[in-house]
């Protein structure tokens, strides 16, 4: 109940910034168009690159644009609030509450993600659908699995952003780590280029790391590339990283209260 209230509150908070939302949708769409033509040129040269055809490739572009803000790929989201509260010392108040900090911020981030999905997600998807005729999930099962995969993607990305924000307990400021982590995520999540195109060991590695949960896994489910037990394996992969990383968040938080001074008197 509480966590639902927290999520709705954050949803509403983000919903107050309408101009930012509109300009964001515009930006995502412009990038979607640029990427689409680049990918089309690429697939024109190699029509079955990475096991995708050109429609898969263009669909992948627009899914990436739709997911970008939903999963807060290059950082930010409610974990920025956390980092700021650690810096100012207000995190002490969060710790006085009879609620776990991780669950609280996760609920809040899911509220934010829901808002960004409805706006920054659906907006570009609609434009991709109209302008580039992107494909839709092939079955109800695929669509359902995509929805589950999306939630898992948000949780995995939340956990990584939470860990990045937690560095503020030691470094006082998360910005440096956040920039590095964001740049790394753009590359390794398959946002820039699908992981299916990564060669050899780099591809194997990238597909095993948690960032594959961000874009590659949900996109493959949408495109119907993962079926039957393979679909379960895809979701299992995300669940595994979600569990491991959320546990890491709890661990880091415990370490922080043990070792570190909360700022200010």
């Amino acid at each position: 109940m509480l966590h639902v209230a927290v999520a709705t509150r954050t949803f509403r908070r983000y919903a107050t910034y309408r101009a930012a939302t509109l300009s964001g949708i515009f930006t995502n769409s412009v990038f979607g168009i640029i990427y689409s033509y680049a990918y089309l040129a690429l697939w024109d040269a190699n029509p079955s690159a990475g096991g995708y055809d050109s429609q898969d490739a263009v669909t992948y572009v627009w899914l990436g644009q739709a997911l970008l803000m939903t999963i807060a790929l290059w950082g930010g989201g409610t974990t920025d609030d956390l980092a700021e509260r650690i810096r100012s010392g207000d995190v002490a108040i969060d710790l006085y509450r009879p609620v776990g900090l991780v669950g609280w911020y996760l609920a809040s981030d899911l509220g934010r993600a829901a808002y960004h999905l409805l706006t920054r997600g659906f907006g570009p998807t609609l434009i991709g659908l109209v302008v580039f005729d992107i494909s839709l999930p092939g079955s109800v099962l695929d669509a359902g699995a995509f929805a589950v995969s999306l939630v898992l993607a948000v949780i995995v990305s939340f956990a990584i952003r939470f860990l990045v924000a937690s560095t503020a307990f030691w470094l006082l400021d998360q910005s440096g780590v956040k920039v590095m982590s964001g740049a790394f995520a753009i590359f390794i999540s398959g946002m820039m280029l699908p992981l299916v195109l990564f060669p050899g060991w780099l591809g194997t590695l990238a597909n095993a790391l948690p960032w594959a949960s961000y874009v590659q896994v949900p996109a493959d489910i949408w495109l119907g590339k993962r079926q039957g037990t393979d679909l379960l394996a895809a979701l299992g992969f995300q669940v595994m990283w979600a569990v491991v990383l959320i546990a890491a968040c709890h661990g880091v938080l415990r370490l922080a209260t043990r070792k570190v001074v909360v700022q200010g008197g």
């Binding site: 108040i93 509450r97 776990g100």
Partner: peptide
């Protein structure tokens, strides 16, 4: 967390 239910905290500056 269990203790937090039984205590209240007020800060003048936060």
């Amino acid at each position: 967390v269990e203790l937090a239910r039984r205590i209240g905290v007020v800060f003048g500056q936060r």
